[in-house]
Amino acid sequence: MKKNNVYILEDRGLLYVSGYDVKEFLQNIITNDIDAVSENNSCFAGLLSPQGKYLYDFIVVKHKSGYFLDCEKKIIDELYKQLTIYKLRSKVDILNLSNEFVVAALHKDKFLELGNSKDQNGYTTKFREDTILLDPRHNELGARLIINLEKLYLSLKKLNLQSSNVEEYYDLSHSLGVPQIDTKKLQNKLFGIECNFEELRGIDFKKGCYVGQENTARIKHKNKLSKRILPLTLLEGNIDNEILKVNNTEIGKVLINNSKPFALIKIKEKEFEFDKELNCENAKVLFKKPQWLSII
């Protein structure tokens, strides 16, 4: 990312969740602590199955009397339905505002030029009355501006930003080990904690119960985390076959197979190594260890 570039994330959608019971409603179902979300702090969170399997992830941002859920647009209708199922008799309203608001990504240094900003993951402030925040997952992902579509280009002009190819942003996200495209392919294929939610600040292990909390806590506290979702670099061949084998030993499965692939890898398998070319059955691949990932 360059300082004066901006990336219009048209593939992101926004749900707005509000109402008298909204705080309790979200606290009971998402992986992170809604009490930590305020006008000055946003968070990354997930919604898991009762078994602790990954379903959806999103960024939670305070907006007026409710919260924006910034998520991949491809899954927004599913997420809306899932939240409606959990709603029951709660006094909660859920609106899809994707046609009114847009998310734009910009460089961290541009964000820090704002007089009311801080170099703190999730730090949230305003620019011309619109929400802007430093990405809560990883600071190299820069900042996110959530803005009404009608005001977007005037604000970008005032920030002296130039619209750039969004592929640059997603290439960066892939290199950092943060999947954001085709996340539907992860659903029910792995546990939320295997999505690196802890390292990406997406789980609060001190909050009360939430959907999938029991298995998530068990994996964490009994040191049973043996698989991780990792960015895959294809050096040669193809990965159409989702099973990855090295020396006839299965090391993992390709879950997201697009131009920015991710695989669920058995990180404790002796045949697996970071930063080494691995000869699989139909491909030569490489896994670079994300700098934030601590693995013994």
Rank of each mutant, 00 (worst) to 15 (best):
S98A: 12
G52Y: 02
G46I: 02
L133P: 00
N121W: 03
P136D: 09
K87F: 10
L48D: 00
L112Y: 04
D57S: 11
N139E: 10
K87C: 09
K87V: 10
D130T: 13
K81H: 14
K74A: 12
N121R: 11
L114H: 03
N99Q: 14
Q51I: 07
D57H: 13
S90W: 02
K74L: 09
L88Y: 15
E129C: 05
E129I: 03
A143C: 09
V92K: 07
I59Q: 07
N96P: 01
E72T: 09
E100S: 14
N116H: 12
I94F: 07
N139Y: 09
L95I: 14
D77A: 14
N41Q: 15
K81S: 13
A143H: 04
K53I: 06
G52P: 03
D109I: 05
S42M: 00
K87E: 09
F44N: 06
L106G: 00
K73P: 02
H138M: 06
L134A: 04
K73S: 12
N40D: 15
F58C: 05
K53H: 14
N139M: 07
G66H: 03
V102A: 06
Q51P: 00
D93I: 13
N139F: 07
K110N: 11
K73R: 14
S42Y: 00
G52T: 04
C43A: 13
S117M: 09
T131R: 12
